[in-house]
């Protein structure tokens, strides 16, 4: 792997910064809940303390990363991320109104075409089978209160 021109962009430095930012964010936010002292701890004490530890660990990871030539982050599988994310969002949008069977048909089909080898038709057939299976297990066998078909 070639040396990175900017060490800030190596995998570990970004990981360290990310961890530190999460820690600092929680620490800052927890001050609103009252930190208190060791004898009388407020609701914010524990998250504040753990947030500080998190920030320190993150900075340590970041510092270590700057000392060595790090590796670049591998490229995310954008197509897969987008289609899977889209199918989950579709599920969340549809489920309350449309009911389970139509939701799974659309969600499953969109998800299936994340793989280029799957055609829309294959995805739809697969989803139809899935919808039937999930209906059988969740609604019929376990009696989950999810409407099968919403009022459209």
């Amino acid at each position: 792997m070639a040396d990175l021109p900017i060490k800030f962009l190596s995998r570990d430095s970004i990981a360290g910064l990310g961890i530190a930012i999460v820690g600092a964010g929680f620490s800052l936010a927890s001050m609103r809940y009252g930190v208190g002292s060791l004898t009388t701890m407020g609701a914010g004490f524990f998250p504040f303390a753990v947030g500080v530890v998190t920030t320190l660990i993150g900075l340590a990871v970041f510092g270590n990363a700057l000392r060595e030539t790090g590796e670049a982050i591998e490229r995310p599988e954008l197509r897969s991320v987008l289609f899977v994310a889209a199918s989950v969002v579709i599920f969340a949008l549809m489920i309350d109104k449309a009911g389970m069977v139509p939701t799974i048909l659309v969600c499953g089909t969109v998800c299936a075409i994340a793989d280029r080898q799957n055609s829309v038709l294959q995805g739809a057939l697969l989803s139809a089978g899935l919808a039937a299976g999930i209906w059988l297990v969740f609604v019929k066998l376990l009696g989950m209160p999810i409407p099968v078909l919403g009022e459209l």
Partner: peptide
Amino acid sequence: FPAVVCLTCVGVYSLKLASFDVY
């Protein structure tokens, strides 16, 4: 994998019947 994604959504939704959990 579409089966796992759908089952994940249904499973999460079934916790409290809240679409917020799916997001």
